[in-house]
């Protein structure tokens, strides 16, 4: 039994091995992009919205509302980033119900990549918002003694993000695989239902935590309240 789709090599292309993680990531990207193109191709103000467009509007506005609630303002770049995080993780986990589909989020490489992207995005958004000097000063808050702890805190955020998402998704897939061998007709269905639920929750938590980290880097006045309000709640949901 392979625990990670990284180890599943689907085919070689000009000497480059294409594993299942990258392949199914492309599938997810294709689904999201094609779905978006199909829904938004005839989008004009004079055309009344159909049910698909309304659904996408609800999703996008829901993400925007969450960001506004956390960051205290509407931030389009943050919407692009956090929204894509949420949609990618959510669709990856939802496609788990398709037989043969291996969610890319079950790969530690994918979750590490996403966590690294958050680690890179936090200083980028912070520098964009406060400038380089202003952002670096946040590592000396409340005093320079806290510098090593702040650096450790930044890295531990990324590690916790990566391990949390990987652990939840991979464990669900592993448990389903094990139960499939033990009781092939009943437990896998329940595990798939639970997997969908936990997959959606994980997508939400991952996107929310990324938003909290980025917004805390962009606005110090809201950082303390956001950090104190949301992470404990999400930790409880995760457990």
């Amino acid at each position: 039994m392979t625990l990670s789709p990284d180890q599943t090599i689907l085919f070689d292309l000009w000497g480059i091995s294409l594993n299942a993680t990258v392949f199914f990531t492309w599938i997810v990207m294709l689904v999201l992009t094609l779905g978006s193109i199909l829904v938004t191709r005839n989008l004009r103000p004079d055309v009344p919205p159909n049910r698909w467009r309304t659904m996408l509007e609800v999703i996008v506005q829901g993400i925007e509302g969450q960001i506004k609630e956390i960051a205290g303002r509407s931030d389009r770049p943050l919407l692009y980033y956090a929204g894509t995080l949420f949609l990618f993780v959510a669709v990856s986990n939802l496609l788990l119900v398709i037989p043969g589909f291996e969610p890319p989020t079950a790969s530690l490489s994918t979750t590490t990549a996403l966590a690294l992207s958050v680690l890179i995005a936090v200083p980028l958004f912070g520098i964009t918002s406060r400038g380089l000097g202003g952002y670096l000063k946040t590592y000396l808050q409340p005093s320079f003694i806290m510098l090593p702890f702040n650096i450790i805190s930044e890295f531990s955020r990324g590690v916790s993000l990566a391990v949390r998402l990987y652990g939840n998704i991979m464990s669900g897939a592993v448990i389903a695989t094990i139960l499939l061998g033990v009781a092939p007709f009943f437990f896998p269905v329940i595990m798939d239902v639970l997997g969908l639920l936990t997959g959606m929750i994980q997508a939400y938590i991952f996107a929310i935590l990324a938003t909290v980290y980025i917004s805390s880097a962009t606005d110090s006045s809201r950082a303390s309240s956001s950090e104190s309000a949301h992470p404990p709640q999400t930790e409880k949901e995760t457990s």
Binding site: V22, T25, M29, T84, S109, T110, T112, A113, L114, L116
Partner: peptide, 9 residues
Amino acid sequence: TVAAQIANF
């Protein structure tokens, strides 16, 4: 794969 996934993302 991590690099590829970052690029994909």
